[in-house]
Amino acid sequence: MDVHLTLVLCSFVYLVRSAVDVSLGSCKIKEEFAVCNLQPSSDKPSNINGTIYFMQKLVPGECKEDFLSIQVYIDNLPLDDGNDKHGLHVHEFGDSRNGCGSMGPHYNPRGSPHGKPWNLPNARHVGDFGNVRQNPKTGKVSVRLVDYLARLTGPESIIGRGIVLHAKEDDLGVNKNDTGSITTGNAGARLACCVIARSSPIYEDKFTLYK
């Protein structure tokens, strides 16, 4: 290759890399982390406990947030109630003074109907995380969820709001003629809950694949 052309190409690559470095260096968005320590509702005593971790990283090489990673670890779910799937949602309030019922309705700042986590923003709540499946032999949940809509920053941040684990499977709002389906997914009683709190960085090895 011509020496002059090589120098020109090298200079171009350097300028591009420098521009990227400057752009990322001036990025005002930071990685964010949160944690939620699950406890049974005070009006439904049980041994349910667990931890839910949240990680909001940046898209590699870009100054914008990636999807929200959610790692769910739950122990001691009941084995004899016939429910292997449980609705898991963000609720409006981080308030458990009167049990999980005081966390209010699903977090729904856009006034949308309840739906599937993969629905468009006008067809799901920001707090619609769908279902988690327990191991039918151990009563444990260990699963990673990825959500494209919920965020740890911005005007619709879920920080300070509640997470509620429900007794039954969320029907994902499929029955449009059923008020329960389009508001709560008919997910039943609130078994356990916690408040989403901002945290220090969480090691990525906390976030495992589906089990």
Rank of each mutant, 00 (worst) to 15 (best):
N83Y: 15
K28R: 14
L9C: 06
G162T: 11
H4Y: 10
H89K: 09
L79C: 00
S41Q: 08
L77K: 01
Y73E: 11
N135K: 06
I29P: 00
I159G: 07
S41V: 01
E31Y: 01
H86N: 13
S23P: 04
V164H: 02
V146D: 04
S112Y: 01
F67R: 13
I158G: 01
A197E: 15
V3E: 11
L209S: 13
S26C: 12
E31W: 03
W118K: 15
N119A: 12
G99M: 04
V20N: 10
G99L: 01
K44Q: 08
S96Q: 09
V20A: 12
P113E: 06
V164Q: 01
E32G: 03
N108V: 02
L145E: 04
D66H: 06
T51H: 05
L152F: 02
G162H: 11
S26Q: 15
E92Y: 07
G188R: 01
S46D: 07
Y203F: 08
K30N: 15
R17C: 15
R190A: 09
S42W: 00
L145K: 09
L79R: 02
D21H: 13
A167M: 10
T153K: 11
Y53E: 06
D128Q: 08
G99Y: 00
S42E: 08
H166W: 10
H86A: 04
L209M: 11
T138I: 02
H114F: 07
S112V: 06
L165F: 13
I29A: 14
F54I: 05
V59F: 05
G99I: 01
V8P: 00
S18C: 13
I196Q: 14
V90E: 11
S42K: 12
Y210F: 13
C194E: 11
L165W: 03
P201A: 03
L58M: 08
D170F: 01
P40D: 05
G160I: 03
E156R: 06
L15F: 15
P155K: 09
P40H: 04
R144G: 14
E62L: 11
H125T: 00
D81R: 02
R17A: 15
N122G: 07
P45R: 01
L15N: 08
I196H: 13
K116F: 12
G115S: 05
G162A: 13
D81S: 05
V174C: 01
G25R: 02
D84S: 12
E169K: 13
R133L: 08
R151N: 11
A167K: 12
G104T: 03
G139V: 04
K64M: 10
D205R: 10
R161C: 09
K140G: 02
P117T: 03
D2G: 03
K44F: 06
G160S: 05
H106C: 11
D21W: 12
P113N: 02
L5R: 09
K30A: 15
C36W: 10
I74V: 09
S42Q: 09
P60K: 10
S200G: 11
C10L: 15
I159W: 02
A123G: 00
V16I: 15
A34F: 07
K64F: 04
E31P: 00
Y53G: 08
P117D: 07
G173S: 04
L58D: 05
T51R: 12
F33Y: 14
G162V: 09
V16C: 09
S200I: 08
I196R: 06
Y53W: 12
H166R: 14
N76V: 00
T153R: 12
